[in-house]
C-alpha cells in the first residue's frame, strides 16, 4: 500500500460534514418521536379483540419489518406525491418513511414488553377499580416503557444509521455531504473514513449505554 493521505479537504469540508450531521440528527429525532408515539398506539391497538383493528395493524407492522427500508423510502418519495397530490420536501418524506419504519419495529418491542407484564397486574388494577384508560396510562405504559427501553434505544440508534439512506433521495445529510466532498475532491478514503468515524462516534456510546440500562432495568423489575 503506497497511498498518500491528504486531510486538507476533509479539514476544509468539515463544517459541511457537521452541517450534514445536524440534519441527520434532526431526521433521527423526528423519526424517533413518530416511532415512540405511533409505535405505542399501534401496540395498544394490537391488544384489541376486534379483527378490523388488528388485521390492518398487523399488515402494517409486518410490511415495514419485512421489506428493505430503501424501498420504503423510495416508494414514499415517488409515490406519495402522485397518490395524494402533495409536494412535501424530501426531508419530510425521509422523516415520514423512517418514522413509520421505526414505529413498526417499536410496536413489536412494546408488544413484547406488554406481554411480559405479569397478568396479576391486570387483576390488581381491576381490583383497585382502575378503568381501561387509567390502566393503560398508569400501569401498562410505565412498565412497558421500562421493559422495552433497551430495545427502543437500540431501534432508535438503528434508525440513526438507516437515515443515511436519505442521501439517495438527495437529502443533504451527513452521508450525502460525505459523498459530495469525496467526489468533488477525489479523496474518498479520507472523507468516507471521517464520515464513518462520525457515525460511529454517535452510535457507539449509545449502544454501550444500552448494555448498562439493560442491566439496571433487569434489577429494577426483578420484584
Amino acid at each position: 500500500m503506497n497511498y498518500e493521505f491528504d486531510w486538507f479537504y476533509v479539514k476544509k469540508g468539515f463544517p459541511q460534514l457537521i452541517e450534514g450531521l445536524w440534519l441527520t440528527l434532526e431526521l433521527t429525532l423526528w423519526a424517533n418521536v413518530i416511532g415512540l408515539v405511533l409505535g405505542f398506539l399501534v401496540a395498544i391497538g394490537m391488544l384489541s379483540k376486534i379483527k378490523a383493528i388488528v388485521w390492518p395493524l398487523t399488515a402494517y407492522i409486518e410490511f415495514f419489518r419485512c421489506t428493505p427500508a430503501l424501498i420504503q423510502l423510495v416508494w414514499f418519495f415517488f409515490c406519495i406525491p402522485i397518490l395524494f397530490n402533495v409536494w412535501w420536501s424530501a426531508e419530510f418524506m425521509g422523516i415520514l418513511a423512517l418514522g413509520l419504519n421505526l414505529a413498526a419495529f417499536n410496536a413489536e418491542a412494546y408488544r413484547a414488553a406488554i406481554q411480559a407484564i405479569p397478568h396479576a397486574h391486570t387483576d390488581a388494577s381491576t381490583a383497585l377499580g382502575l378503568n381501561v384508560f387509567q390502566r393503560i396510562i398508569h400501569v401498562i405504559l410505565p412498565q412497558a416503557l421500562i421493559l422495552s427501553l433497551p430495545v427502543l434505544i437500540t431501534n432508535g440508534i438503528g434508525i440513526f444509521q438507516q437515515s443515511a439512506l436519505v442521501a439517495l433521495i438527495s437529502v443533504e445529510d451527513l452521508m450525502y455531504q460525505g459523498r459530495y466532498i469525496s467526489t468533488q475532491t477525489f479523496r474518498p478514503i479520507e472523507t468516507l473514513t471521517t464520515v464513518a468515524l462520525i457515525y460511529f462516534a454517535v452510535s457507539f456510546p449509545v449502544s454501550q449505554a444500552v448494555t448498562l440500562i439493560e442491566r439496571r432495568t433487569k434489577r429494577l423489575l426483578a420484584n
Binding site: Q161, Q162, S163, A164, L165, A167, L168, M175, G178, R179, S182, P188, I189, L192, T193, V195, A196, Y199, F200, S203, F204, S207
Partner: peptide, 17 residues
Amino acid sequence: FFRGTPVLVQLFWIFFC
C-alpha cells in the same frame, strides 16, 4: 465498528476506497 456505522457507508467505503 461494523454494527455502529451505516451499511451504506461501509458499502461506499469498500467500493471507493
